[in-house]
Nucleic acid binder design. Structure first.
Length: 295
DNA sequence: ATAGAGACCTGTGTGC
DNA sequence: TGCACACAGGTCTCTA
């Protein structure tokens, strides 16, 4: 489920329940996700208080009073859901429904929110590409060390983007997915941003930079497009394709506004373009674009 | 250094 | 209905 807008939506869903909460217990239903849970994971968290929940790129960061900074990634299919403990197991729920919902619940946090409500926060992840790790005592971790600029706020502009792309032979698609350059874009929003900027995903990344390293008009347009698509998706609560996004089980709705993603064969939505959306594979992953208006 | 392929996992949809 | 295959919001590791 997760590119930056989805992860940030999850963070915002967890925050009211978790910030300031006490951790009463942590139950792990298997020893590992993508990586093994750290030693004494549950013990180190239990009894602590959650100071805050943050995000860097696609990583969720949970600060507690008893354990090192908790770094969590949702992988492809990870999700959190928050339930009041009292109503978590609704009487009358059919057995098969429950077992389906709980089939891949791997970690369960029992907490008492600062309003006094007992809640259950459950991490579910069918493919187990997600993980939870502890950072070093100083909050550093190799996974966080080489992350690029956030595509939110005004950190990313034409000149910054030009600096990142200068000299790169890789296609724009691959460069935009590189988390060490820009941190948070994924397969959907790269396709969408390139459509908005009318740039071909196959174009060599370095071609949006002038010889002297200055940004071209294309670089400025692309930087704006990246920020705009992330911002729009955030305001729509992210995109829900196969898994729920929100911690209360509700869906994001940005998927209804995709211009090109998963729209192979459909007409390009750009007024007057007349092109047909095409799907190609770049470094093993689908890219969607309009070959007529994206150059 | 840099670009691409393969690997990690499970579920779902498609076509025969 | 079964079965094989392709594909899925990510990213780490290995190879040229």
């Amino acid at each position: 489920m997760p590119e930056l807008p989805e992860v940030e939506t999850v963070r915002r869903g967890l925050q009211p329940a978790m910030e300031g909460a006490r951790i009463d217990s942590v139950e792990l239903r298997r020893p590992d996700l993508r990586f093994p849970f750290p030693p004494n994971f549950a013990e180190r968290l239990t009894g602590g208080q959650i100071v805050g929940i943050g995000r860097r790129a696609k990583y969720l960061l949970l600060e507690t009073t008893t354990a090192p900074l908790l770094i969590s990634h949702l992988g492809m299919t990870g999700s959190f859901r928050v339930e009041d403990s009292a109503s978590a197991r609704t009487p009358g729920t059919f057995h098969h429904e429950r077992s389906k919902a709980e089939a891949h619940d791997h970690a369960v946090f029992q907490i008492t929110s600062k309003d006094g409500t007992a809640r259950r926060v459950t991490f579910n992840d069918p493919r187990r590409f997600g993980f939870m790790l502890f950072a070093n005592a100083d909050g550093s971790h190799p996974m966080l060390d080489n992350l690029g600029v956030e595509p939110t706020g005004n950190a990313l502009n034409g000149s910054v983007l030009a600096g990142l792309m200068q000299g790169k032979q890789a296609p724009l698609k691959a460069a935009l997915l590189d988390q060490t350059l820009i941190a948070g874009l994924g397969n959907i929003y790269v396709s969408e941003a390139l459509w908005r900027a009318q740039l071909s995903p196959r174009r060599a990344a370095g071609t949006i930079v002038k010889r002297n390293g200055a940004p071209t008009e294309r670089a400025a347009l692309l930087a704006d497009a990246v920020r705009a698509v992330i911002d729009d998706a955030l305001r729509a609560g992210g995109s829900s394709l196969r898994d729920y996004v929100h911690t209360d089980g509700s869906l994001g709705y940005f998927q209804h506004r995709f211009a090109v993603y998963d729209r192979e064969g459909e007409p390009c939505p750009r007024a007057g373009c007349g092109g047909t959306i095409r799907r190609i594979v770049q470094s093993g992953r689908s890219t969607f674009y309009c070959p007529v208006c994206q150059r």
